[in-house]
């Protein structure tokens, strides 16, 4: 088996599969910081982000992915954060975004 080279491989599924994803860590983060779930995706955090101005860091997107159980790369992404705290100032839902960064770094290092 596998001896034949067909010149292509089977593409991997892109869909976020909520039947397979482990939502445990996301729930843990939400339990420690309930307002984490109150995001309305306005993007204010990303708009003002010091790191996002220079890299493709998108805090809004990464924390949304974390809430869906998509943890791969989240920890690495959060390392781009400069912890300046401006995002927390602009958040209209009062989310401690800086705290979310720290929680993701603490909880999701293994992914």
């Amino acid at each position: 088996m596998g001896a034949i080279n067909f010149g292509y491989t089977v593409s991997a599924a892109r869909a976020i599969d909520l039947d397979r994803n482990d939502l445990g860590p996301a729930r843990q983060i939400a339990a420690e910081m309930p307002e984490f779930a109150a995001c309305i995706a306005c993007g204010g955090c990303t708009a003002t982000c010091t790191a996002g101005a220079l890299t493709n860091f998108n805090f809004r997107m990464v924390q949304t992915l974390v809430r869906r159980g998509e943890y791969a790369g989240a920890w690495r992404e959060m390392n781009k954060c400069m912890l300046c705290g401006k995002c927390r100032l602009v958040c209209p839902r009062g989310i401690n975004t800086r705290g979310v960064v720290r929680l993701i770094k603490r909880k999701l290092g293994d992914y």
Binding site: F6, G7, Y8, S11, A12, A13
Partner: peptide, 14 residues
Amino acid sequence: VQANRGFSIANSRK
């Protein structure tokens, strides 16, 4: 196109 067959076959697999 041979290089595109990967997502053709992936749909059948799905």
